[in-house]
């Protein structure tokens, strides 16, 4: 599998990463190499009728849904103001963001 620089540009834009031309070329080369190695999983033909998308099922891994009541947990909640102040930009008790509409 060879990855082109156009594909890298598209993936970078989907992942919201700005790349230089040099980086784009390097990543195209790197990804082609990694995918060539990873492609060996295509040799495996067993188990393809299973619908597993989570893994670990055959190991009897004790997976199950964990639910809780939808109530706020004051024991853990850090002070809201400290969380707001972790933002790169804030005003008072609010996180500041750029305008996205009209």
């Amino acid at each position: 599998m060879t990855i082109t620089t156009e594909e890298i540009q598209k993936l970078a834009s989907l992942a919201r990463l700005k790349l230089t031309d040099e980086e784009t070329e390097q990543y195209a080369k790197d990804l082609s190499g990694i995918l060539k190695y990873v492609d060996q999983i295509q040799e495996v033909t067993e188990g393809v009728d299973t619908t597993s998308t989570s893994g670990k099922t055959s190991a009897d891994f004790p997976h199950r849904n964990t639910m809780r009541d939808d109530v706020s947990d004051q024991e853990i909640n850090p002070e809201p103001q400290r969380l707001v102040e972790a933002a790169p930009k804030y005003q008072g008790g609010f996180v500041e963001v750029k305008k996205i509409l009209g």
Binding site: V38, I41, Q42, V44, E46, G47, V48, T50, S52, T53, S54, G55, K56, T57, S58, A59, D60, F61
Partner: peptide
């Protein structure tokens, strides 16, 4: 890739079992 990898992941787990 993603789904295939999960299938092989299960096969590896079965080997260990």
């Amino acid at each position: 890739y993603y789904n295939k990898a999960n299938i092989v992941r299960d096969l590896i787990a079965a080997d260990f079992k």
